[in-house]
Amino acid sequence: MSQPSHDAAIGAAPHGAAPAAVEGAIAGASIGDRIYRVVTTAFAWVVPLLLGLIALEVVLAAWPAFRTFGVGFLTSSEWDEVRGVFGAAPMIYGTVVSSVLALVLATPLALGVAIFLSEFAPSWLRQPVAFLVDLLAAIPSVVYGLWGIFVLLPVLREKVMPFLATTLGLAHTPFFSGPAYGPSMLAAAVILAIMVLPYISAVSREVLMAVPRSQREAAMALGATKWEMIRDAVVPYARSGIVGGIILGLGRALGETMAVTMLIGNRHEISSSLFAPGYTLASVIANEFAEATSEAHTSALMACGAVLLAVTLAVNVIARWLVWQVSREGK
């Protein structure tokens, strides 16, 4: 699209052949249009500038910690306010484990919902179910946390954890050992799974619906049952978009703060057991910010935020790119 021809509509003549000025009725230019365009363009620039400013400010806040601890900040698991030594390894571990576990729990369910809504659901059921699932995304994190503390934790402590450890006999494995307090990596993962489910299912549903009719009809014409059509034609076609949706869900899970802070137990230790408390990058900031008195402690918390920003930024760019590819092909 050539810019000059577009500008032509605003005032100047589109061809320079006859520069003879026009007098009388049809002369004049619209200043208003220029102002309007400048103003909307300025508003549009806010988005990239804001993103840049966010990155800059977060890095500035984290800078002292990075300068003091270097790469060791990412690998050390020592976190001692008194001695002023900080390492984020347990938080990075907790963030990754809780998020990945949440995805493992949420993905099959979210895909099931997406396929149900895009392929199987009778039309009278489609709208209400989609609405309810979308509503899960609208519930504030702090409400999930509240519900988690008073409803989910007792159920996990009294039913699920004993069932996993004793009934299934998994207590001797490193993943389900130790006492079942309640606040734990498992609790955080379960609440995160519920929270990211609507994101994964919404994106998946969108890309599944974008699969061209010809793909479905080709499979149907070959005599495939509906399920075979979905498995062999629809899902493979939408695969990269679905992966994008899962990564998007990962981005959400990595940065979720309040619900995780309220359920994960908040302890600076790496434990293989999912029954043990842990910490995430986001929850350590939320939990310790108010009590951080030293500059070093605050900066270490901000450094956790910077790591989180870098990771979620990368994850989001990848996810959006994947989803865009698919929806562009579909159209």
């Binding site: 993103l51 966010i54 977060v58 806040a61 986001a282 989180l308 920003l309 989001n316 996810a319």
Partner: peptide, 14 residues
């Protein structure tokens, strides 16, 4: 879209 996916806690730090 990317901004939308950033954790809200990062907005707080900013």
């Amino acid at each position: 879209d990317v901004l939308n996916g950033l954790p809200s806690i990062v907005m707080g730090i900013f």
